[in-house]
Nucleic acid binder design. Structure first.
Length: 213
DNA sequence: CGGGTTTGACCTGCGC
DNA sequence: GCGCAGGTCAAACCCG
């Protein structure tokens, strides 16, 4: 486990966010390594290039955290695979599939519903970080919709939630789970890049103050 | 009524 | 090849 980097492709940081009643307080966090973060958080940086700011210290993930994080990431997302397409060359016409299938990234090939499903393997840039917060969902300025929840084994807090950016053309996903060792620690994993600015989603004035997210 | 959440089912990938 | 675990869908449900 080399430092604050998770297994392949995904970067992990630990954000020591003071317990706040409103997760939105996290909006002004600041990264220690702007350059790296700019890269690692590319998916969090809106197209207009607005930097992603954090207000608290960001340190590499602890081994435990990283392990936990990595476990959930499993291997498919090694750097290589992130950069290249599926070697198996699965017939996943992902792009077209995504666009054609409403807002589904993979979809039944519309032949027989529920039968032949062409699931694509997402190989978007991923970034996970750990925060200490009483709330699960950090308000990063984007609007998320929960699309699933899973029971995670080997965890005292077996609930992992899956969120998706509600923006029509945005494919970013977010996964939120509690650290088993510390129920106050929240592991948030982002996947993909936002194709829009936070304002597009969070149209409410509440979010305007930290549109830099 | 529209948008978000819940939840069970289904599919895929991986380890054994 | 089989079983398990993770990830996602989609219908039902809930709430403002």
């Amino acid at each position: 486990m080399e430092g604050g980097q998770g297994v392949g492709g995904s970067r992990c940081y630990l954000l020591d966010v003071p317990p706040v009643s409103r997760p939105s307080m996290v909006h002004q966090m600041e990264f220690e390594h702007p350059k790296e973060n700019a890269q690692g958080l590319g998916f969090l940086v809106p197209p207009d290039g607005t930097p992603f700011l954090l207000s608290t210290d960001v340190v590499p993930f602890t081994n435990a955290a990283a392990a936990s994080c990595d476990k959930s990431m499993s291997k498919p997302w090694s750097n290589e695979e992130v950069a290249t397409s599926d070697s198996k060359g699965r017939n996943d016409q992902t792009g077209s599939c995504r666009d054609g299938g409403a807002n589904s990234w993979w979809r039944s090939s519309s032949l027989e519903k529920g039968k032949v499903k062409v699931r694509r393997k997402m190989r978007e840039p991923r970034f996970c970080f750990q925060t200490r917060s009483d709330v699960d969902v950090l308000d990063d300025g984007y609007k998320w919709r929960k699309y699933g929840q899973k029971v995670v084994k080997n965890s005292l807090h077996p609930s992992r939630s899956y969120y998706r950016c509600t923006h029509s053309n945005c494919r970013v996903k977010k996964r939120v789970e509690r650290l088993s060792e510390d129920c106050r620690m929240v592991i948030t994993t982002y996947e993909g890049r936002h194709t829009h600015s936070p304002c597009d989603d969070a149209s409410s004035s509440e979010h305007e103050c930290f549109s830099s997210f």
